[in-house]
Design a protein around this nucleic acid. Sequence first.
DNA 1: CCTATAAATGTGCGTGCGCACACACTTTCA
DNA 2: TGAAAGTGTGTGCGCACGCACATTTATAGG
Lengths: 152, 152
Amino acid sequence: MPARATDPEGVAAWAAVLRVHAAVVPSLERALAAIGLPISWYDVLLVLNAAPDRRLRMTELGEQATLSRERVSRVVTDLEGAGLVERRPNPDDRRSSYAVITPEGRRRLRAAAPTYLRAIERHFARHLTSSEIETLTAGLGRVLVVEERRTP
Amino acid sequence: MPARATDPEGVAAWAAVLRVHAAVVPSLERALAAIGLPISWYDVLLVLNAAPDRRLRMTELGEQATLSRERVSRVVTDLEGAGLVERRPNPDDRRSSYAVITPEGRRRLRAAAPTYLRAIERHFARHLTSSEIETLTAGLGRVLVVEERRTP
DNA sequence: CCTATAAATGTGCGTGCGCACACACTTTCA
DNA sequence: TGAAAGTGTGTGCGCACGCACATTTATAGG
């Protein structure tokens, strides 16, 4: 017998994820654009700020943010130009360099956070019960554990 | 008093959606690329095939597929070149034209469907219980009703 | 009936983003 | 020690995609 039938309900759930992503992301982008901060910048600053010593190597940054490794490299260059992040050489491995968030970067992040959080609340979380949010986080988290590191 | 505190759990749920999207979409793209069918093509063919008379105007196609109106226009042009879709004039409104799926388009769609469904099962639905899938579809569906038509 | 506004579509252009590849350095192994 | 293989990063190139605009046709208002 076949391994398992492809169930239409799983497809509907995936379609919902796709459509929610397509609908909500532009709303959040506009909310952050209003304060002059691209969403990729916010993402990088957020991860850096939460990292030990507020610094991370490029690869680690790519893993923790929702950005590819190549994209990280370019975004960090832009952030450097804006004075929100600095590149520092890594004394233990001269191939790599650290990205460090600057005080100015932290201020911009703190200034943007309320807007961003409020946008997520208004355009996404507001429509869900806390029970749904719990289920969703747990379920999708389980998907991530398996799928996040599959590059074949 | 403030309207409502921004809850961190909602943010975590949104982060999960972002990361699952970022992790799963490339997997599905590779699965479909193996049979020579871009995911945007599949999306358009699927929606067209399910539409009344198997045809739709460009705007409707953009609404039902996960594609912008402009992108639809270009994808349909490509699909026309491949013989999978035809443009037909709309006799009732000469501004618009219909996109109609061809028999060849239906064959390609039917040939691709099992691969696509199996990929969704393997990379996404497999990791969720049917109860989670139900909750997820219902909750995200509610988000869509409100957010899908917010262009400001 | 004629004009002003709205709607449906297509397209030039700029940007985001990933794939390959190149480069520098590190680690492994004989 | 001296290659050879592996790892971390940056970048040229091409495609996807949305914005803004142009074009054509429909509709509303006088």
